[in-house]
Design a binder for these strands. Structure first.
Length: 337
DNA sequence: AAATCGTGGTA
DNA sequence: TTACCAAGATT
C-alpha cells in the first residue's frame, strides 16, 4: 500500500531543517503560545527574513504576554515601526491585554478566533502548533500547494472553498501543527510561486500540476489592480535641533504611528517649494511626499523630537525616509555654501 | 464582499 | 523599472 502524501510530507519535514529558527524541532513539547502567537502575527504578509531580527528584539523587550499587556501603546507602536500593516500592532496590544486579563490564551481555535487580530489562519496555527489541536491552518502557501497537488487552475479567490475542503481531507489530526509548518516550508522553499523545484519535492509523484509539465500555471493568476498615484505634504517645523512630530489617528493608513504633521494626502501636487520629495509605494497606491518648511508653531498635539534621537521615535518607513532626505538636502546645501 | 492596510526583496 | 509576492485581518 503506497504512502499517503501527508505521510510523505511529514517524513520529509522530520528530516529537513525548518525555515523558522525559533520553532522547536518536530516531536518536541509544544511551544510557548505567546511566542507562537507573536511570530504568527508578525509573519502575516511579512517575510521570515524580515521577521527574524524583529521577533528576537520584541520578545527580549516583552518576554511574556503579561509584560506586553502592561506596556504603553506608544512603546508597542514604536517597536513595530517599519514592519508595516500597523493595525497588527494595535490589535496585538489589545489582544495581549485581553489574554492577560483572562489568565492565558484560549486553547482552541474557536476561542482564539474571537481575539483581535486573530483570523482563521492564525487561530488554527496557534491552536495546532501551541496546543496540539487537530485543526488545519491554511495560508497562501498551503493554498498554492493544494491547488497544484490537485491541478486546480482557477484563481485561488474562486477556488478557495474547494481548496479548503481538500486540505481538511488530507490533514493529519494527530500532527496538525507539524503538518501546517511542513506545508508552509514546502511552499516557501520548493513549491514556490515561481520556478518551483519539483525535482526536490516529496509530493511530485502525487502532483497533478507536476504531471502537467507547467506547475507554475497552478493555481490561476489573480486579478491585478491598478495603483493610483497620490501626493502629500509633510511639514518641517524645527526649533533648537528638534522637529515637531504628531501621532496619526488610530484609523486609516499608518494609524497610530508617529509622523510629520501635514494635511491629508490628495491627488493634486503641493505647489510650495519642497526641501525634499520622497516617492513611496503602498499596497494600493503610490505617494510623492513633499517636505516643506513651516515656521508657524504647531496648533495640534505633538512633541519636539530631537534630531539626534530621531531613530528612536518609532517612525514608519515613509517618514523616516522623508526626514532622511530632508537632512541630506540640508547637508548638500551646506557643502555647496 | 471588495477595499483597505506597509514594506522589502526578487526577477 | 515595473510587477509580483510574503505563515492575513478587518470592515
Amino acid at each position: 500500500m503506497p504512502a499517503r502524501p501527508a505521510d510523505k510530507l511529514l517524513s520529509h519535514y522530520d528530516a529537513n531543517a525548518r525555515a523558522l529558527p525559533w520553532r522547536n524541532p518536530p516531536g518536541s513539547p509544544p511551544m510557548d503560545p505567546y511566542r507562537v502567537w507573536l511570530s504568527e502575527v508578525m509573519l502575516q504578509q511579512t517575510t521570515v527574513a524580515t521577521v527574524k531580527p524583529r521577533f528576537r528584539r520584541f520578545v527580549e523587550r516583552w518576554p511574556t504576554v503579561e509584560a506586553l499587556a502592561a506596556a504603553p501603546a506608544e512603546d508597542v507602536m514604536q517597536e513595530w515601526a517599519g514592519l508595516g500593516y500597523y493595525a497588527r500592532a494595535r490589535n496585538l496590544h489589545a489582544c495581549a491585554k485581553s489574554v492577560a486579563a483572562t489568565g492565558g490564551f484560549p486553547r482552541t481555535a474557536d476561542g482564539l478566533r474571537k481575539l483581535p487580530g486573530i483570523g482563521d489562519y492564525t487561530a488554527a496555527a496557534v491552536a495546532s502548533i501551541a496546543f496540539g489541536e487537530g485543526t488545519a491552518a491554511v495560508d497562501t502557501n498551503v493554498e498554492r500547494v493544494i491547488a497544484r497537488l490537485h491541478g486546480i487552475d482557477r484563481p485561488v479567490a474562486e477556488a478557495r472553498p474547494d481548496i479548503r475542503r481538500l486540505a481538511a481531507a488530507m490533514w493529519p489530526r494527530d500532527r496538525a501543527g507539524d503538518f501546517a509548518q511542513a506545508l508552509m516550508d514546502l511552499g516557501a522553499t520548493i513549491c514556490r510561486p515561481k520556478a518551483p523545484l519539483c525535482g526536490e519535492c516529496p509530493l511530485a509523484a502525487d502532483c497533478v500540476a507536476f504531471a502537467s509539465g507547467t506547475p507554475e500555471a497552478f493555481p490561476g493568476p489573480k486579478a491585478k489592480a491598478i495603483r493610483p498615484h497620490r501626493h502629500g505634504e509633510a511639514w518641517w517645523i524645527e526649533r533648537d535641533g528638534a522637529i515637531w512630530l504628531v501621532r496619526r489617528p488610530e484609523k486609516g493608513i499608518l494609524g497610530g504611528m508617529a509622523a510629520l504633521p501635514g494635511p491629508e494626502w490628495a491627488t493634486a501636487a503641493p505647489t510650495g517649494r519642497a526641501i525634499a520629495i520622497v516617492s513611496h509605494g503602498f499596497t494600493h497606491f503610490t505617494l510623492d511626499l513633499h517636505v516643506t518648511h513651516r515656521a508657524a508653531p504647531p496648533d495640534s498635539e505633538g512633541w519636539w523630537q530631537g534630531l539626534a534621537t530621531i531613530s528612536e521615535a518609532g517612525l514608519p518607513t515613509l517618514y523616516a525616509r522623508a526626514i532622511e532626505a530632508a537632512l541630506a538636502a540640508r547637508e548638500a546645501r551646506a557643502d555647496a555654501a
